[in-house]
């Protein structure tokens, strides 16, 4: 799993810069993925994952700058693998299996600030994502933003996500649920 801003900064400084062509491929891949998520094409999105995928979404915390104290494990909203994501996709794509997403949320994923670097394990990508969602039960638009650290790997079918770490920006999520992917 790619790490945090500090490890990403090291990679960006030390790794092999992406060619214009590779950057374009990463850019197109992330836009394709955001279209899948925004349009609810979850089975297509699932096909963009490596079977070895690790998928984690973390909550932030407000800590004292001089004496931060953390306890327990990370505070994760998602800590999933290919099998568990498959069950989530099955739930979200089967109308009789979901109350939360039937009728489906109207949402858009906006991905910006994309940077990437190649290393021996694939392409490490950092980006920001803003998800805007409107629900039948909460008509006022809800917003979730996060910083994402991805590892994309080359496969015969094209790029695939091998790991994602999304760091959310809200300590108390102003959403009734996370029945969607970041």
């Amino acid at each position: 799993m790619p790490g945090t801003d500090s490890t990403m900064a090291r990679l960006l400084l030390s790794g092999e810069a992406l060619s214009d062509g590779d950057f374009r491929r990463v850019y197109d891949f992330l836009n394709l993925e955001s279209d899948c998520l925004g349009l609810g094409e979850y089975e297509t999105w699932y096909g963009l994952l490596s079977p070895a995928v690790t998928y984690k979404v973390l909550a932030p915390a407000f800590l004292d700058a001089t004496r931060p104290r953390r306890y327990g494990r990370e505070n994760a909203y998602f800590d999933d693998d290919y099998a568990s994501l498959g069950i989530r996709v099955k739930q979200l794509t089967t109308p009789g299996f979901t109350i939360a997403e039937n009728p489906a949320t109207i949402s858009r994923h906006f991905v910006t600030n994309i940077r990437g670097v190649a290393n021996g394990e694939g392409i490490e990508v950092v980006s920001n994502v803003l998800v805007v969602r409107v629900r039948s039960t909460e008509p006022e638009p809800g917003v979730v933003s996060a910083r994402r650290f991805d590892r994309l790997v080359e496969t015969p079918e094209g790029l695939r996500i091998e790991s994602r770490l999304a760091q959310l920006d809200q300590v108390s999520l102003q959403q009734l649920n996370l029945s969607f992917f970041i």
Partner: peptide, 23 residues
């Protein structure tokens, strides 16, 4: 831990439907 956050949590497969019903 992993099972817990996949079931009864903000992104949990059980919680997400409950919250929709309460809304």
């Amino acid at each position: 831990y992993e099972i817990g956050i996949r079931t009864f949590a903000a992104g949990g497969t059980f919680d997400q439907d409950d919250a929709e019903a309460w809304s």
